[in-house]
Amino acid sequence: MGGVNVYGQSVDDQTRCVHWHSDLDIIAIKFKCCNRYYPCFSCHEEETDHEHQVWPRSEFDQNAILCGVCRKELSIEDYMASGNICPHCTSHFNPGCSNHYYLYFEVNDHMK
């Protein structure tokens, strides 16, 4: 595995957690507030004692997504433009994650 630590209740080495663990749930997200990767929002909320922060649009060029299969980091903009396929290893990401972008990223109201 790569050198990036993933915190939270991971259930395997591809970043699946107790909350999200389908075959497609293979990303971890770096939280802006603490600069730590977690498999999901719930894992962050359960393990930290601070409010989460969303990434502002002006920082979508930052690496904040980790593919659990190849362990490569992606920028937020590359992740959002990926078509739910890792550009490095072609593993498929859960397309349903886009329903939760507002928990992690500054998005337009119509994306919620």
Rank of each mutant, 00 (worst) to 15 (best):
I26P: 00
Y38I: 03
K112W: 11
C70S: 05
Q9T: 08
N84I: 02
K112Y: 12
N35Y: 13
G8P: 04
C17W: 04
Q9A: 04
C89E: 00
I26T: 03
A81P: 05
D49E: 06
V54E: 13
H100F: 14
H19C: 02
G2N: 14
I85W: 06
V107I: 10
E46S: 10
H92P: 04
Y101H: 10
C43K: 08
M80Q: 13
E46G: 06
P56L: 00
A81R: 15
N94M: 02
Q14K: 13
E59M: 15
K30H: 04
K30S: 00
Y37W: 10
N94K: 05
G2V: 10
S75D: 11
W55I: 04
K30T: 02
F60N: 08
S82D: 02
E47L: 14
I26K: 00
N63R: 06
N63Y: 00
T15A: 08
P56D: 01
V4N: 09
T90N: 11
C34H: 08
I65H: 05
I27P: 08
W20S: 00
R57E: 10
C70W: 12
T48I: 07
D109Q: 13
E59N: 13
C33H: 14
V4H: 06
Y38P: 07
E59K: 15
F31Y: 14
R36G: 10
E106S: 10
F105Q: 13
S58H: 14
K112F: 12
P39D: 06
C17R: 01
C86R: 03
K32W: 07
